[in-house]
Design a binder for these strands. Structure first.
Lengths: 147, 147
DNA sequence: AGATATACTTCAGCCCGCTTAACTAATTAA
DNA sequence: TTAATTAGTTAAGCGGGCTGAAGTATATCT
């Protein structure tokens, strides 16, 4: 039977390792793409959130419309975002990732996936099954939590 | 028996969820502390790497000594880093996190730990044991991989 | 129609982070 | 001991990212 302490400890160790890795992942993504952290976060929001307007992005990121507009403008010029007029409301813009923009994010996700996959290489089949089950459980729980 | 496909899929789903979460974690950490991404990365390097010099940091972060020096200077002024003369080589400086600097990073790690712990709340004891075992395996594998 | 509100853009101004280049100070090599 | 190397700082300059304020165009309220 699992003591609460064991669970906490395991999670804490894991958190340290993966926080560190996350930092490096982002840093590398920034260096390779030449984008800033804010810009990558912006792309990730679009990647997960689908279509969105300028002020929607600004709100999600906690910045002013002006800042969002400027940042988006740069990303449009880089060919990572497509910005079109909303036919329903011609004041608004619809923002969607271009194929190139999507590729940038998926590449990052893929890099992390491959890293984890590498970690499982040395495990026994039983252990691998356990990892599959555990990660699936966690991912599901996380998706339920998302509002 | 686990097919390779299952493993890859599970890891991919997990990666998406956690990449997204990582982004938000960093963003929140930046907003709360008022620090930039670079500065947090710098603190994390010191947190994990222990003592280090200015050029060591610059090298790890892929920036010039000048940039590292300036960034460190700001963090020293904020009371997050202690910068002292190396007694062995008086040209060099020893950089260590202050208690406040350490607290900033540990707070971030703790936030993530608590999030994951929250995810496990709804799981059965057996499932929790599995999560413990899986995360422990992954964390160990990751630490072995670190050079 | 006229007033108000909304969605976004533009501009000026500030700070941050980066680079290169020039500098100081300490160490090491000749 | 003089010359070269190494560690770090400082300064000028560029661009990014943010804000507040002003401006444009569309939509909605009365």
């Amino acid at each position: 039977m699992s003591s609460n302490r064991e669970l906490t400890d395991a999670i804490h160790k894991w958190s340290e390792v993966f926080m560190r890795r996350s930092g490096r992942d982002f840093k590398r993504c920034m260096d390779e793409s030449g984008l800033s952290f804010s810009q990558i976060i912006l792309l990730m929001r679009l990647y997960h959130g689908g279509k969105s307007g300028v002020s929607g992005i600004g709100e999600q990121l906690g910045i002013t419309n002006a800042a969002a507009s400027q940042s988006i403008d740069r990303l449009v010029n880089l060919g990572l975002i497509e910005r079109t007029e909303d036919p329903e409301d011609r004041r608004a813009k619809q923002l969607v990732l271009t194929r190139q923009g999507q590729a940038l994010i998926t590449k990052s996700v893929k890099a992390r996936s491959q890293w984890v996959e590498g970690l499982t290489k040395a495990l026994t089949p039983e252990q691998q099954n356990m990892v599959i089950a555990a990660l699936t459980l966690l991912a599901q729980a996380a998706q339920v939590t998302e509002e």
